[in-house]
Simulated scan of single mutants.
Amino acid sequence: MPFKPRRVCNCGNRVWAGELCPCQIKRKAENDRRRPNASDRGYDSRWSKARRTFLDKHPDCAMCGKPAVVVDHKTPHRGDRTKFWDKGNWQPLCTHHHNSTKQSLERSK
């Protein structure tokens, strides 16, 4: 049965492909503690209503055409309220493309 080989983390540990190294788990936990909660970042009841309205008008994923469930900000708003509410900066995405393809694109910039 084929399997992917282990990879070497930046810290030097060897971990199986698809798994996180203990240093990565620790770093993620630290970042999560510092990150403001969703409502502090603007994702409140007003956003929920705007999101529903947008998805009613744009029901298909912009990348694959499957049903969209996420309203994504094309350009990350990074707390900028003007960018956050700019509907020209919104796009409908399915969960797969929001959580994988879009995240990879943002990390590579």
Results as ranks from 00 to 15, higher is better:
C94F: 00
S100K: 13
P92K: 03
N13C: 07
F84Q: 01
K102Y: 02
R78W: 06
N31M: 10
I25C: 02
A29Y: 06
S104F: 08
C11L: 07
G18I: 04
V69Q: 05
R52C: 09
T53H: 09
D56Y: 07
G12S: 08
A62Q: 03
C94A: 10
T53F: 08
R107W: 08
Q24A: 10
Q91T: 03
T82D: 15
G12P: 01
M63R: 10
G65F: 03
V8G: 02
R27C: 02
R6Y: 11
S39F: 05
N13G: 03
P22L: 05
A38F: 06
D44R: 06
S39P: 00
F54D: 00
C9S: 12
W85F: 09
E106V: 15
K26N: 06
Y43K: 05
D86E: 09
G42S: 04
G18M: 05
R14Y: 09
Y43I: 04
A68E: 00
R41G: 01
K4M: 11
N89T: 07
P67D: 06
S108Q: 14
E19K: 14
G18R: 03
C9H: 13
I25W: 04
G88C: 05
N37V: 11
R52D: 14
T53G: 01
P2N: 10
M63V: 13
R46E: 12
A68F: 00
G88R: 08
L55H: 04
G88A: 07
D60Y: 08
K26P: 00
R14Q: 13
K28G: 02
T101E: 15
N31W: 10
F84P: 00
F84N: 00
V69F: 00
C61W: 00
P2Y: 09
P59F: 03
C23H: 09
D86R: 04
G42V: 03
N99F: 03
D60G: 01
R27K: 13
E19S: 12
D32Q: 14
I25D: 00
P92N: 07
P92C: 09
F3I: 10
V8T: 15
P92H: 04
H58Q: 08
D40N: 12
W47K: 02
R51H: 07
G79K: 10
P22K: 12
P22R: 12
A17Q: 11
S45L: 07
T53N: 12
D86F: 07
E19G: 01
A62P: 00
W16Y: 10
S100G: 08
T82F: 05
T75V: 14
K109R: 15
T101M: 12
S39R: 15
K102A: 10
S108W: 03
D32A: 13
D40K: 13
F3N: 11
K87S: 14
Y43N: 02
K102N: 07
D40W: 00
T82K: 15
D86S: 08
Q24G: 12
H96V: 13
S45H: 06
W16A: 11
S104Q: 14
L20Q: 12
P5V: 09
